[in-house]
Amino acid sequence: MVYVIKVGGNVIDNPALLDRFLADFAAVPGKKILIHGGGKIATRIGDKLGIESKYIDGRRITDADTIDVVTMVYGGLVNKQVVAQLQAKGCNAIGLTGADANIIPAVKRPVKTIDYGFVGDIPAGAVQAAPIKLLLDAGLTPVFSPLTHDGNGQILNTNADTIAASLAVALSAHYPVRLIYCFEKKGVLRNAADDDSVINLINRDIYKTLLAEGVLSDGILPKLDNAFSAIESGVKEVLIGHANDVRNNTTEAVAGTLIC
């Protein structure tokens, strides 16, 4: 089994939570990959440089100045700090972007009603699994920042959830894969106001029933849609759970929501 684990920005932003998460991640046995977001660090660095962050519907507009900032922060500062902390915890990590070894070629998002700037979308089948397999088989743990490239020299800002799913799908041709999304909730909740109302198992039939009952929060629906899309593309299992439960969620005794 290969574990493809994505950790959210809320953990990246909190040094204590990040230290605990990385200790747990380092202790996960076997082959694993980490994908991290950027949190709010790029916004803080941009503010210091006089580069204003712009958002539409919660999505960052990545103009020419902003792509320079996120490349420095995501691919440099955050990625190398995470790698250094993993090394300190006995995990032989290697920091990467999608441009390295041409692992994740992407295309610049076309302008429709909104111009998102230098934002990348990953075409189906674009991820190159062979270089990742070489690293994993050599005992290294790849750590990906949320950056891809267009093949013509341009770095692109790309959603970390999407990168995680694309990597998991590509690797599923070579290994059984569990894709794990770690965030601030314990899993998919039956009642959004009750953190303990975790639904431990969801398949397509259960998902249809939950949708019909209207019990799921709108925010979790994109994660579930991505999860089922990954499974339909070859990923064995997807797990959605709390960052503090990553050790449990790499076992059969999962603490979050297993989607299969």
Score class of each variant (00 low, 15 high):
20 R>T: 13
86 L>E: 02
9 G>Y: 08
115 D>Y: 02
8 G>D: 02
215 V>F: 03
21 F>M: 09
131 P>K: 12
154 Q>D: 12
108 K>W: 02
200 N>L: 13
66 T>A: 11
150 D>E: 04
20 R>G: 08
152 N>E: 14
250 T>Q: 11
219 G>A: 14
248 N>E: 13
249 N>T: 05
60 R>N: 03
132 I>Y: 03
203 N>R: 13
130 A>G: 09
235 V>W: 08
12 I>M: 01
75 G>D: 05
225 D>W: 00
155 I>A: 11
110 P>H: 03
214 G>Q: 09
240 I>W: 04
247 R>L: 15
231 I>D: 05
184 E>F: 01
75 G>R: 09
174 H>D: 14
104 I>R: 05
69 V>Q: 05
54 K>A: 06
3 Y>K: 14
103 I>V: 13
244 N>Q: 13
182 C>W: 06
145 S>N: 01
1 M>I: 03
247 R>S: 14
160 A>S: 15
156 L>A: 10
256 G>R: 09
58 G>W: 06
190 R>A: 15
119 V>Q: 12
73 V>Y: 09
174 H>E: 13
18 L>V: 02
80 K>C: 03
191 N>D: 15
1 M>N: 05
131 P>Y: 08
102 N>T: 06
191 N>Q: 14
89 K>P: 00
173 A>M: 11
118 F>S: 09
179 L>C: 11
153 G>S: 06
213 E>M: 07
242 H>N: 14
155 I>R: 07
159 N>K: 10
61 I>E: 08
87 Q>Y: 12
